[in-house]
């Protein structure tokens, strides 16, 4: 034979096979075809019921999902105001929750038994009771137990007194309840991140003369971020939806807004769809954000980062070789340039 040896791909299906180099036959997967067919039918049914099917309600034949009604209310002013409240509650609860979580995590890791014990009790309590109950407590319970809230010296004179019902509005109660609850969950996430950092890092920082606070802030926490970020993204997405619970304390969030509308016009399902579409939209945005934050904190941990979806798309569309991202650009957030 004078021809160059054919590549394995060419050889498949050749008739005059060289007995010395047998061809490979990939395994067949008939089950995949069956599964594909089933899924195709199910998708067709879903599309049909969502878009094309009709139903008779009270003698009127109308579209099953009432998409025009959804469209009417998607950008309705009360809905948009509700979105504002939902986003505010999410941001406040996560910012306070993360700060509280860092504090509680550091307390739990403290050699001081009183500090670690009280952090443990906090986490035990706020993780151990339903957030719905906690929200109700802050809205109703506080004013019941302490009608007058007082700022002053313990067991001594009071400087400032306020009516609890005035101070703890529905929004304040919602933000308070969600934040305090989130703090307990974030504490465990941050603690997991901190203990994942090698002890040698702490020793190296201390041998340079860094204080405990400096070591935590400059050395341990930035490295712990890689462990902390993914579950924190998860918590944020979860929080966005958990805010809908404030409806029980007269909250004015997205879910409450849509429920108020449907209570008036009886378009129950279309307004559920309106709320769900908005929640889906914002969780999608958060998912994308989480991806990029994770990339940012992965620096120093992998030699080259994979291209982002955008870069991959550009690569495929234009067949341009996108330069691989320099694995480790300057990291201004930790670099000692102050």
């Amino acid at each position: 034979m004078t021809d160059p040896p054919a590549s394995p791909a060419d050889r498949v299906g050749e008739h005059d096979e060289d007995p010395a180099t047998p061809r490979t036959v990939p395994v067949r997967h008939p089950g995949r075809w069956v599964a594909g067919g089933v899924i195709l039918v199910l998708v067709a049914m879903l599309v049909n019921t969502l878009l094309f099917s009709h139903v008779e309600r009270g003698g009127v034949r109308e579209g099953r999902f009432q998409w025009p009604v959804v469209g009417n209310y998607l950008f309705d002013a009360p809905v948009i105001r509700g979105i504002g409240v939902t986003l505010e509650l999410t941001v406040i609860a996560m910012v306070v929750g993360i700060a509280l979580g860092v504090l509680l995590a550091v307390m739990r890791l403290s050699p001081n038994r009183l500090l670690s014990g009280s952090a443990w009790v906090y986490i035990w309590f706020f993780r151990g009771t339903p957030v719905l109950v906690q929200l109700t407590f802050w809205y109703v319970g506080i004013a019941y137990l302490y009608p007058q809230l007082t700022l002053g010296v313990p067991f001594g004179p009071a400087f400032y007194t306020v009516n609890a019902n005035v101070l703890v509005t529905s929004f304040v109660a919602g933000a308070l309840g969600l934040s305090l609850n989130e703090g307990a969950y974030m504490a465990e996430i941050v603690r997991a991140g901190i203990i994942s950092v090698d002890e040698g890092q702490t020793e190296a920082a201390q041998s340079l003369g860094m204080s405990k606070i400096q070591t935590l802030r400059r050395i341990v926490l930035p490295q712990a971020m890689r462990i902390i970020i993914p579950p924190t993204g998860n918590e944020t997405i979860s929080m966005l939806k958990t805010t809908s619970l404030v409806i029980v304390i007269a909250g004015a969030d997205l879910w409450a807004a849509t429920q108020n509308i449907s209570a008036a016009n009886y378009q129950i399902v279309p307004l559920m769809v309106v709320a769900s579409l908005w929640y889906l939209f914002f969780t999608s945005v958060l998912t994308v954000g989480q991806y990029y934050v994770e990339r940012y904190y992965a620096r120093g941990s992998s030699r080259a980062l994979p291209p982002t979806p955008l870069q991959r798309l550009r690569q495929e569309l234009f067949h341009i070789r996108v330069q691989p991202v320099p694995a480790l650009p300057e990291a201004p957030w930790v670099a000692p340039h102050e």
């Binding site: 090698d198 020793e203 190296a204 340079l208 003369g209 400059r218 300057e330 990291a331 000692p336």
Partner: peptide, 30 residues
């Protein structure tokens, strides 16, 4: 401690900083 330098068996460089930033970290922060 800052007057005593220490080098470890397990290297213990700060992985989230460049070589330069590792060497600058003590003087700048401490």
């Amino acid at each position: 401690r800052s007057e005593i330098g220490m080098v470890f068996q397990r290297l213990n460089l700060f992985p989230h900083m460049s070589a330069l930033d590792n060497v600058m970290s003590g003087p700048v922060w401490v």
